[in-house]
């Protein structure tokens, strides 16, 4: 039974990563490497907590977190899409901003508890039928509604990217904005839309931490998970389904170190902390070594598109 307990905790730990990773996939698919994930998660976490703490309403808390994340992303979007500034530098600046923002506005709330109404709202709920499946039911279907929404999002992001015209256009812009522009796709509008969605999802990922994962607001709630999400996008090879598996795998690594200590496991716990990054490096090297184009990063990832240069 203990393995079920462990895996269910892994799903919970991976959920914040899953939100942010889905967001970053959408952004990278349109060719924008946004290294501000950590910053947007920080902004979402702190705004989500403040909104939840003052209103006591879970819907308002989540909505504010998503909007705040999207607002942060729009700074990045405005600078990189309209003003063509370097994506790496702008993303790093957004991360610095987000960390500063969260530390500044969150300071008054450190040590405060999540309101009871919200805690109850996000309590694990066992789903009928699905929750009764042996083993799997207890791992996946005895979770918070916030976790269930992430399952739904994985499907939505998959449909958006691969089954709709908008997704097709998005992927085309990421691969070749020149051709996309020539065929009449409004490139900048798509970029803004995708970047804003990325910000909203990162904001939701951050708010998951501050509203569900912890019960007392700490000094630095995100604590570098944004960078793991950036790694996870590569690990998942820009695929929403694999992002889900990867998120739970990385989530498991996150809590493995605590669990294995109690069993006196012979491997150093620090190995588990490095594993997400090591695994990502292997995936990165491995994908670049083979020629499958659809399993690589989008061709224009990190490059800005300037119409007049065509």
């Amino acid at each position: 039974m203990e393995i079920v307990f462990f895996l269910s905790a892994a799903v919970k730990a991976g959920t914040c990563l899953l939100y942010a990773t889905l967001g970053e996939i959408i952004s990278e698919k349109v060719g924008h490497l946004n290294l501000g994930v950590e910053g947007m998660m920080q902004i979402g976490a702190v705004i989500g907590f403040i909104a939840g703490f003052t209103s006591g309403n879970p819907y308002i808390a989540v909505l504010c977190a998503a909007l705040a994340g999207a607002a942060g992303a729009m700074i990045y979007g405005f600078l990189t899409v309209s003003l063509k500034s370097n994506q790496v530098v702008t993303g790093l600046a957004l991360t610095i901003f987000g960390i500063g923002f969260a530390a500044f506005f969150g300071k008054a709330f450190v040590g405060k508890k999540v309101p009871e109404a919200i805690t109850i709202f996000f309590q694990p709920v066992k789903l009928p039928f699905l929750g009764d499946i042996p083993f799997i039911g207890n791992i996946f279907f005895n979770q918070s509604v916030y976790v269930y929404f992430s399952y739904f999002l994985v499907i939505m992001v998959y449909i958006y990217l691969y089954k709709t015209k908008w997704g097709l256009n998005t992927r085309m812009i990421g691969e070749n904005p020149v051709a996309a522009d020539a065929s009449g796709i409004p490139v900048d509008r798509y970029k803004y839309f995708n970047i804003a969605i990325c910000g909203a999802l990162c904001g939701l990922g951050g708010a998951f931490l501050s509203l569900v994962y912890i019960s007392i607001f700490p000094v630095n709630v995100v604590g570098g998970r944004g960078w793991i999400a950036v790694a996870l996008v590569i690990f998942a090879m820009w695929n929403p389904g694999k992002a889900m598996l990867g998120a739970y795998f990385f989530g498991a690594m996150d809590i493995a170190s605590f669990w294995l200590q109690t069993y006196n496991f012979p491997v150093s716990i620090y190995f588990f902390n490095a594993l997400p990054y090591l695994a990502t490096v292997f995936v990165l090297v491995f994908t670049s070594m083979r020629k499958h184009k659809n399993k690589k990063e989008p061709a224009w990832l990190g490059k800005n598109y300037f119409k007049e240069d065509r």
Binding site: A231, V285, G302
Partner: peptide, 17 residues
């Protein structure tokens, strides 16, 4: 191999060391 993502990962491997 994409060096932006690779060097970023190397930061965190160094940090765990």
């Amino acid at each position: 191999t994409n060096e932006t993502l690779f060097t970023l990962m190397m930061n965190y491997i160094a940090l765990t060391i």
